[in-house]
C-alpha cells in the first residue's frame, strides 16, 4: 500500500507530470509523420535529420538561446536540403546525404566544445532527458506536436497520394514538391519535439518502429497510421513508467527504455503478421472458372468437417479444407485435390 502511495506521489510531482505530457504527445506525433516517411521508403530520413539537429542544439547552447528552437531551425533547413538532394536524384545523392549527416553531428560536437559546454549537457539532447524538461519546453513541445498531428491527419489524403505515387499525384494536379517539402519539414519538427524524450540519436526509432509494428497487422493506410500513433503513445508512456518504477538500485535511461519497449512491440507483432499473411495466402480464392481436373487424394484416414482443425475455404459451391498445403474437397466417399 505504501509503495502504491509513493508511486502516486511520484507521478504527481511536477517534473513527472511534464514528462508524462511530453511522452504522450511525442508518441502521437512522431509516428504520424513516420508513416509517410515509411510509405516513401525514407525510413532513415529521421535519423539524418536527428544528426543535423545536433548542430542546432550546440548553436543554441553556444549562443544561450533555447536549444529547442535552434534545433527546429537547423533541422528544418537540413530536412529541406535533404529533400532537394533527394529530388534531384543524382547518383551521388546518398553520399551527399552522408556528408550532411556526419557534418551535422561533428559540427555539433565541435561547437558545443567551443562554447565550453560539458558533454553531459549535449548528452541530454543526444540521449534524451525527459524528466528534466522545463515548463517552457513542454509548452513548445505541445504546440509543435499539435501542428504536426493536425497537418498529418488533416492533409492525409493529399500526403497519401503524393507518397503513394508521385507521378499520378502530379497529373492529378497536386503540387508534389510542396507536399514533399512539407513532409520533410514536419519530420524535422517532430525530430525536435522528440529530442527531449528519446534523444536525437534514437529519434528515428520513434518515427519508424511503431509504423513497422502496425503494418504487420493492417491492410489499409488509415488503420496503419492510427495504430502507429496508438502504439507510439503506448511505447513512450510504457517506457517512461518502466524507467520510473525500475527496482531500486537499477537505473533505466527513459529514452532507451522507450525505444526498447517499441521494439518489443515489433518483436511480438512480427510473428503474428507472418502467420496472418500465411493464412491469407492459403485462403486466396481460385480464379473463377478455372477448371479443376478430378484428382482423388491418396489414403485419407482423417475426416474433414467443422472444427476439424483444418482451415475451410469456400470454393464455388462447396468447402475446401487446407491440409498440409493442399486443398481437399469432399467427393462421395473420398477427397479430391483442388
Amino acid at each position: 500500500m505504501t509503495s502504491l502511495t509513493t508511486a502516486l506521489e511520484l507521478l504527481n510531482e511536477p517534473f513527472m507530470r511534464r514528462a508524462l505530457i511530453a511522452a504522450v504527445i511525442t508518441g502521437l506525433a512522431a509516428p504520424a509523420v513516420g508513416t509517410f516517411l515509411v510509405q516513401r521508403r525514407l525510413a532513415l530520413m529521421g535519423d539524418g535529420i536527428g544528426h543535423v539537429a545536433v548542430t542546432g542544439v550546440a548553436l543554441g547552447l553556444l549562443t544561450g538561446t533555447s536549444p529547442t528552437w535552434t534545433a527546429v531551425v537547423v533541422a528544418v533547413l537540413g530536412a529541406v536540403l535533404i529533400e532537394v538532394i533527394r529530388e534531384r536524384g543524382e547518383a551521388s545523392g546518398d553520399v551527399a546525404l552522408a556528408l550532411l549527416f556526419y557534418g551535422g553531428l561533428a559540427g555539433g560536437i565541435l561547437i558545443s566544445g567551443l562554447g565550453g559546454q560539458s558533454m553531459a549537457t549535449l548528452g541530454q539532447y543526444l540521449f534524451g532527458s525527459i524528466t528534466s524538461i522545463s515548463e517552457g519546453d513542454v509548452i513548445v513541445t505541445l504546440v509543435l506536436a499539435a501542428i504536426v498531428i493536425v497537418l498529418c491527419v488533416g492533409l492525409s489524403p493529399q500526403l497519401f497520394a503524393v507518397a503513394q505515387d508521385a507521378e499520378f499525384a502530379r497529373v492529378a494536379g497536386l503540387r508534389v514538391r510542396f507536399y514533399n517539402v512539407m513532409i520533410a519539414v514536419l519530420a524535422a519538427v517532430s525530430v525536435a519535439v522528440a529530442m527531449r524524450t528519446v534523444g536525437l540519436l534514437l529519434v528515428s526509432a520513434l518515427l519508424v518502429v511503431p509504423v513497422a509494428t502496425a503494418q504487420q497487422l493492417t491492410r489499409s493506410f488509415r488503420a496503419t497510421i492510427a495504430a502507429a500513433m496508438a502504439l507510439g503513445c503506448l511505447a513512450s508512456l510504457g517506457g517512461l513508467l518502466l524507467a520510473t518504477f525500475a527496482p531500486a538500485g537499477t537505473t533505466l535511461a527513459p529514452g532507451a527504455t522507450i525505444v526498447l519497449v517499441a521494439l518489443g512491440g515489433f518483436v511480438v507483432a512480427w510473428p503474428i503478421g507472418v502467420w496472418a499473411r500465411h493464412r491469407a495466402r492459403l485462403q486466396e480464392p481460385f480464379a473463377a472458372g478455372a477448371a479443376v481436373g478430378h484428382e482423388p487424394t491418396g489414403e485419407h484416414p482423417h475426416e474433414h468437417g467443422p472444427g476439424c482443425g483444418h482451415l475451410a475455404v469456400p470454393h464455388d459451391d462447396h468447402l475446401d479444407y487446407v491440409h498440409d498445403g493442399h486443398r481437399h474437397a469432399p467427393h462421395d466417399t473420398h477427397y479430391d485435390e483442388h
Partner: peptide, 27 residues
Amino acid sequence: GFVPQRASAAAGVPASVWELVASGRLT
C-alpha cells in the same frame, strides 16, 4: 485520368484498394 505502369501500385505502407481508388478523387 492517368493510369501509370503497374510498378507504382504498392508502396512502403499497406494501402487498401478503396484508399488507392479514393486517392484518384483528389482532383
